[in-house]
């Protein structure tokens, strides 16, 4: 008896990758899942940070998908390597700072390396022709196959019948007739197939699978790059962009202000790396100052910090300013009135 063919399926946690893996699994192929953690993934973080989200049941959607399929899941951390994709995408960005086409090529490329290393036969993705304006078009499908190095070992079971035959089909590892011809933005065929397989309660992320498609997040990342004069980031930078109110009152500094206890605790972990402020005479949030503040800036930052605490209507509030070296100073300030905070300060 010949051994069944082995496929590694990209599992994002959404419906399409779940269905794609299921379609080949049903044809007797041994499937294992691979999931990439770039640092921008929507999974987890914000739930863990914000107090209001703590009570919500939380799950990792990629793991949930793997459980539905009864397959192993390998989570691969690609934080460092992914920086080049985000900061200098060859094919540019989508509607925000999402470099989807480069990202897909990168992930399929990593899956291809994994496939070779683990002696698997082909790669499966949940891509659908015409589903996304930039990264999932008929003419970008071969780009991903080519640039990833996967070539015709890349199978898209949901739209394979609209694309040229691939190796798994030619070798008879899968039957082309049992693959699909989905195209366009309609989700109906996927939902019908999900019902056929008996899948319910699957995740349906609105914009995409990562924060880079989020307009607010992309604006904050764009601001970070502009102020640094270059496109670069560290893991801590992109984590901090997910947390707190971000205000830039002056070009050379911004303030990150916690919105609740959860964010306060999270920012506490970073406070030693930054000038940080908090009111001592009234309850209020922790604020981190990112940049190079002059003396007058510290006064402004203290007044803003007071503004977001319970002393906002008080005549004066005492604010402690702590520098990264541990040096502390106490200032008594008048909280900045709301009307003196222009909308454009908010990132």
């Amino acid at each position: 008896m010949t051994k069944p063919a082995k496929a590694v399926a990209l599992i994002s946690g959404g419906l399409d990758s779940l269905l794609a893996a299921k379609v080949v699994q049903q044809q007797g192929v041994h499937v294992e899942g691979i999931n990439f953690f770039t640092g921008f993934c929507v999974e987890g973080h914000t739930h863990a940070i914000r107090s209001k989200d703590r009570g919500r049941p939380k799950r990792n959607n990629a793991l949930w998908v793997a459980e539905q399929l009864g397959i192993r899941l390998h989570i691969v951390e690609v934080i460092e390597e992914y920086k080049a994709i985000v900061t200098a995408p060859r094919h540019g960005y989508g509607s925000n700072l999402n470099p989807c086409l480069d990202c897909k090529g990168f992930m399929v490329g990593k899956a291809h390396e994994w496939m070779i290393e683990h002696d698997f036969d082909f790669i499966v993705t949940g891509e659908v022709v015409g589903q996304r304006p930039k990264s999932q078009r008929r003419d970008t499908m071969p780009v991903i196959a080519r640039e990833s190095g996967a070539g015709d070992r890349l199978l898209r079971p949901l739209c394979a019948r609209l694309l040229p035959e691939t190796l798994p089909e030619r070798e008879g590892w899968v039957d082309r007739q049992l693959l699909h011809d989905f195209s366009g933005r309609s989700r109906k065929p996927q939902m019908a197939l999900a019902a056929e397989f008996g899948f319910a309660d699957y995740a349906q992320p609105a914009g995409g699978c990562c924060f880079l498609t989020d307009e607010n997040y992309a604006r904050k990342l764009g601001d970070l790059w502009q102020m640094r004069g270059e496109r670069s980031y560290e893991f801590d930078d992109i984590m901090l962009l997910k947390v707190g109110r971000h205000l830039r009152p002056r070009p050379h500094f911004k303030l990150i202000v916690a919105r609740d206890d959860g964010e306060n605790n999270f920012l506490m972990g970073y406070r030693r790396q930054f000038v940080h402020l908090n009111a001592t005479s009234h309850p209020g949030p922790l604020a981190l100052l990112d940049g190079e503040p002059a003396a007058a800036d510290l006064e402004l930052a203290a007044r803003l910090t007071a503004r977001f605490g319970q002393g906002r209507e008080a005549e004066s509030v005492e604010v402690e300013i702590v520098h990264p070296g541990g040096e502390r100073q106490l200032r008594t300030v008048r909280p900045l009135p709301a009307e003196e905070i222009p909308a454009y300060w908010y990132l």
Binding site: K58, L63, R72
Partner: peptide
């Protein structure tokens, strides 16, 4: 606290 859901799920699969 996410580990209470995620690590057991990872172990199961």
């Amino acid at each position: 606290p996410g580990v209470l859901a995620d690590i057991p799920a990872w172990c199961r699969v």
